[in-house]
C-alpha cells in the first residue's frame, strides 16, 4: 500500500476541501444557526456551566455531529477535579 500512497496527493485536494466546506454549511443550514453564532453559544454555555462547575474553559469544544440527517450538538467540557488540579500542579 505504501507504494500506492506515492501516487496520492499529500496535501488537501480540491475534493477534500469541497467535502469539508459542504459538511460545514449543511450542518449549520440544517440546524438553522449561523456559523458565527456557534461561538456565541459556546461562550454562553461556558458561562452557565461555570456557575456550577469548575471547568477548563479554554478546552471546551462545541460542535455539531451529523448522522443520516440527524444533527446533534456536542459539547465536550473538561471539568476540574481534585485529581486534575493536582496533575496540573495547581494545588
Amino acid at each position: 500500500m505504501k507504494l500506492f500512497d506515492l501516487f496520492r496527493r499529500r496535501s488537501s485536494s480540491t475534493q477534500d476541501i469541497a467535502a469539508e466546506r459542504l459538511r460545514l454549511v449543511l450542518t449549520h443550514d440544517r440546524a438553522n444557526i449561523a456559523p458565527g453564532m456557534l461561538e456565541v453559544l459556546k461562550d454562553e454555555i461556558i458561562a452557565v456551566i461555570s456557575k456550577h462547575l469548575d471547568i477548563d474553559a479554554d478546552k471546551v469544544v462545541v460542535n455539531f455531529t451529523e448522522d443520516n440527517r440527524e444533527t446533534r450538538l456536542m459539547a465536550d467540557i473538561p471539568v476540574h477535579t481534585a485529581r486534575s488540579r493536582r496533575a496540573e500542579g495547581k494545588v
Binding site: T14, Q15, A19
Partner: peptide, 13 residues
C-alpha cells in the same frame, strides 16, 4: 480528486 465523488455526496446529503 478534483471533484466531489458521488459517494461523498450521498453520504453528506
Amino acid at each position: 480528486n478534483g471533484m466531489l465523488s458521488a459517494e461523498t455526496v450521498v453520504d453528506l446529503l
